[in-house]
Design a protein around this nucleic acid. Sequence first.
DNA 1: CGATGGCTTGAGATGTTTCAACCCACGTGG
DNA 2: CCACGTGGGTTGAAACATCTCAAGCCATCG
Lengths: 238, 238
Amino acid sequence: MPKTSATPPFPRCIPSELFGAIGLTAKELERVQKLIFVPRSVKKGERLFRHGQPFQDIYAVRSGGFKSCIRSSQGREQVIGFHLPGDLLGLQGIASERHTCEVSAIEDAEVCTMPFEHVESLARELPSVQHLFYQWMSNEILRESQAIIMLGSLRAEGRVAAFLLNLLERLKALGYSGSELVLGMTRADIGSYLGLKLETVSRVFSKLSTSQLISVDNRNVRVLRHEALVELATPQPL
Amino acid sequence: MPKTSATPPFPRCIPSELFGAIGLTAKELERVQKLIFVPRSVKKGERLFRHGQPFQDIYAVRSGGFKSCIRSSQGREQVIGFHLPGDLLGLQGIASERHTCEVSAIEDAEVCTMPFEHVESLARELPSVQHLFYQWMSNEILRESQAIIMLGSLRAEGRVAAFLLNLLERLKALGYSGSELVLGMTRADIGSYLGLKLETVSRVFSKLSTSQLISVDNRNVRVLRHEALVELATPQPL
DNA sequence: CGATGGCTTGAGATGTTTCAACCCACGTGG
DNA sequence: CCACGTGGGTTGAAACATCTCAAGCCATCG
């Protein structure tokens, strides 16, 4: 979703990256690939799955970006997360056997589809795969609690700062610059995710920009004073 | 944590309840019990585990109530969840191999300790146990996204209403009344969880009380107009 | 009995939303 | 090729919600 303006290192999550670190043999990797690595490409704006749809697969983002939303009965939409390459999608559906949110691409993307039944049988066979999946799910829980912390303890400026830092950090882990990014989402999406109105998001961007913490040109953001952002994103002592 | 004022149905989560529905044989149940069901009791105010502590076990609440908090470097504490019998604790720690929050009892409680290594090996052996754990983790993810939705789309009144309804529903599932409860936590805890100051929580209680949606006597709450609360807890259309 | 912790309430300060106007870039059809 | 509509973004002023600070109440406990 967001990228640096510089030519990207072209990160794509392939089996050897996702499963590479856990010491599988070539044969096992091949099995992983065949069973739980069905590729699929998704155009910008296309939905990967919808709320209520029967749950069968989980997905790993290989390239591009996604947002996940819930949609209330009255049609109000709320963004509950943005997803970059390496992230897993659809984990919420396991318990209820239906998807409980909808996920759509905010730029052209590729995923690999992992039929959950295959994941389960493979996990029984290969302990390291099992452990990896528990870790991924645990990470998802962690990611969400960080969102809760942010929403519960920061006001507008802090939330935007935390949002930017979070994206930058994740992008950095993917090989991007760590101080520059291109937002793939609208101000309204950001606001929805942060529990703010888009006007507020816009004002905060302007304010951070005039106080020289960041420079903003439409969707291009560059961080000028990283520590100052960190400071803003830190809940006040006491 | 919260109970009805009426004598409680005394819910305790025992192996046959937690694992009963998934069709294990008596022999398997016994194995479950031995490997991942080490009981432990926790006094009110006592901590089950702390932030940063090495992760080894997860816990299932059998009776009583807990809160989980994160504590910032400056000592600011934020509540990120309340836990009733049947809930799982410590799931966040799997990914990082350390606990990332601290959990303490808000009333006398019992848990069963589940050494995570045993859980993993048992899960490999018994597919239904494996599936159950994935479901539990998925549920945790779901629970958290609901918190995010609440924080992101409701203001003070709605948050408090959603909080009460959520507790009532969970208590009802445990056999309690569904319209009456005793809060086990302080206003400050509630506020911290809801992203509000305790004064605001107090004011909202007062307001809901004078408008006859609930009756409040200190920590005893009775719901008078359930639908009206649901209405409040529903994000505005558009 | 005085100290304490939890709770309530008020009044003013601060932060956020609302509503409205306006700008710009883009794509489409006359 | 221009005119126009549209979607995304910015900005201002006033309405509104929440927080802050301060006071006071009540029950509990040593």
